[in-house]
Design a protein around this nucleic acid. Structure first.
Lengths: 146, 146
DNA sequence: TTTCGTGCAAATTGTTTGCAATAGA
DNA sequence: TCTATTGCAAACAATTTGCACGAAA
């Protein structure tokens, strides 16, 4: 099931970190996002909307870093722009980003596995599919461009 | 065979673009790099060393854009940092970047093909493996971390 | 009462853009 | 000549960092 805001906060507390209003708001936003992928800017905006505390971008990045350090959160690079963050408990998936329409797609774990095995077989390299997207053309854009 | 500086320059000329000292120097650097992947900063530095013309970063980016527009050059995103540029006539290859030691590897076209087919089969998505790297752990780092 | 965490402001990195002067064709 | 191209400086977006104050523990 999905991680709750409380368990994210508990994670921070366990690591000896202090629980503050900004951190609480950020954890709530991340928990509420479920599988959605949010940019730091989106998290900041949502956290500000949810809390009356003044929240700074740097605080968002610092909290995100802390959660990543704890292993509960990961970020991926979808394109040329900002990174997106999502809970680490999600199934591994490969992001596909269409260079024409900009939409992103997720490749189910099964298909990713075949890709990973392929890479591993040749080089001993242990790929982490979550980190970078693969760019290309989505089915629709590929059809129109032809 | 590899593209020569002259043919890159000819490409620009064919497109109705003017041939200037900075462009000539940039083309020479790219041609001399063969299969090496250079950042815009590296291209700038090398072009400055090779020409007595004053060359600005913006000129490098603009020339690189022009060559990409002509289809002779492509850039890839290897990691969080700067893009790298290389001639488009190179065989398609997937970059692997080790998140631990930072080294990059190239996956031969044959192996990439299996991956591409796999992606295409499921989603109709036409992947371009050259654009984004896949991050993970190289064989060595994976061994030490275990 | 200690630190840790904060907001703020400024620095960084990589890249893009507006502009007037310059130099190809 | 005439317009593309330039260097410069400033704008950019995403992110990081230094710092003194304020607030968790």
């Amino acid at each position: 099931m999905h991680v709750s805001a409380d368990s994210l906060i508990a994670t921070l507390r366990t690591r000896g970190m202090r629980v503050t209003a900004p951190r609480r708001a950020i954890c709530e936003v991340i928990a509420a996002a479920h599988a959605e992928h949010l940019t730091a800017a989106a998290i900041l905006e949502a956290a500000r909307a949810r809390s009356d505390a003044k929240i700074d971008p740097s605080t968002v990045y610092r909290t995100l870093d802390a959660l990543e350090g704890a292993g509960t959160l990961t970020h991926s690079h979808l394109g040329h722009g900002a990174s997106v963050y999502h809970l680490a408990d999600e199934a591994a998936h490969q992001h596909l980003i269409c260079s024409s329409c900009g939409r992103t797609f997720e490749l189910p774990e099964k298909d990713v596995r075949a890709f990973l095995d392929d890479i591993t077989a040749g080089s001993g390299f242990v790929a982490d599919p979550t980190h970078f997207a693969v760019s290309g053309l989505c089915a629709e854009c590929a059809a129109t461009s032809r």
